[in-house]
Design a protein around this nucleic acid. Structure first.
Lengths: 226, 226
DNA sequence: ACAAAAGTGTTGCGGCTACACCCATGA
DNA sequence: TCATGGGTGTAGCCGCAACACTTTTGT
């Protein structure tokens, strides 16, 4: 039974698990909390949901504030609600994750908050239940990356097969056979090969690929089983 | 930047997508809204999150109130937050789904609320964004049922292969080959066959199975690809 | 004997893995 | 000419779908 009066209201926050990728390393952006309790402890970027905005909006706003980037793919992970998850006040937190290219973000912006990019393999202990949030975000990232190509989000317009494979190896924390990976990806028929090679990584040079724009939404077949 | 003062607070609700199963039909419990706006329109069971409780607790409480059942598996689906999703007030809603055996619920309890069990194939139009909630709940149900056996939740202690298959056929809205289904399930090695047959469905009689208790958590392999 | 569900066996296809084997080229 | 990453080909394995076939027993 629901009535619109006489019901408790709650602080509702978003916490953003921001993954940054650069040349084979996946990092998490975190910052030292600026106030008590737990001042100085590592924390995810967060903010409160305001009156006129959805939590999606709030997450975007937080991302913009902390990295300078907008129009970035974000995905809702889960909502954390235990009443004592933060010691001082009851805050319900809706968790999002975002994927960005590390080189693209606004360094000044990050620096200003004292934020730090932690390699995913060497995360520090995070405040409250933020460890759990990151864990679930990685799981969701893997699930989503398993169903569709996330090349252009993290590699840019054009990329080589090796770069794409290294990205997937990083996300899934395991190796893929270069030949098999290539065949699997090409069989999806969502990439087109450019007449241009990257000659920085090998003598022979590797062709660049880019997403077939019209087909970005397809991803019919599974890429990686999880 | 987060401070604990001067931030807006919000009404936070849970909405429960309650699936009931009985002999080959999967139903959704919904009830006619008892107050304006949209009084009388079909709606999910919901309730507000109170001060001392988590949203998990709130969802359980709503389930108990409306079906009389406790200690039921519930799973968080997603959180709906657009500011105008309900016309009269801003309510953030955390959606859960539950699976119950229809015969087990407290009929008086349901009747008292004027609630109705709708076969999943003939749902009425639901209020606000509740259609979307149900859609996502079904997707999540299918994902979860694909990874682990949900036999005992919906069929009870013991069940035949055919009963289990019909349950899966209902959840996935497609047919499975009886022989192949049997082999796949048995290969997971999570069921034990009892020395007892159900003779109501066939001349030959079908053995009952039950979950190997120690292994309930396993479900290593995928049951159905989604 | 027949019908109908339970249960088993067989076969073929498709995808994945592992790995061999070319290719191009700078040092 | 050798080392290195790019790229192609292939053989074996495994899971799944399709379907034939056997079993059991009430009518």
């Amino acid at each position: 039974m629901k009535y619109y009066h006489q019901h408790p209201k709650h602080l509702v926050a978003v916490d953003c698990v921001i993954f940054g990728y650069d040349e084979g390393t996946l990092c998490l952006l975190s910052y030292p909390r600026g106030f008590e309790p737990s001042k100085g402890a590592w924390s995810l970027m967060g903010g409160f949901v305001l009156d006129g905005e959805s939590s999606d909006d709030a997450a975007m706003r937080v991302l913009k504030q902390t990295t300078g980037l907008g129009n970035i793919f974000m995905s809702q992970v889960a909502t954390f609600t235990t009443h004592d998850r933060e010691p001082e006040a009851r805050v319900i937190s809706i968790v999002y994750y975002a994927l960005i290219r590390m080189e693209e973000h606004d360094k000044a912006c990050v620096k200003e908050h004292g934020a730090y990019w932690w390699p995913i393999s060497q995360l520090p202990e995070l405040i409250f239940d933020h460890d759990q949030m990151v864990k679930q975000a990685i799981e969701k990232l893997q699930r989503e990356a398993g169903y569709r190509l996330i090349g252009h989000e993290l590699l840019g317009e054009k990329f080589t097969m090796s770069q794409l494979r290294k990205l997937y190896e990083t996300i899934f924390m395991r190796e893929f056979d270069p030949g098999n990976f290539r065949k699997k990806i090409l069989s999806l028929d969502v990439l087109e090969r450019l007449n241009e090679k990257d000659i920085s990584e090998s003598r022979k040079g590797a062709f660049y690929y880019r997403s077939k724009r019209e087909l970005t939404k397809r991803g019919l077949d599974r890429i990686v089983k999880v």
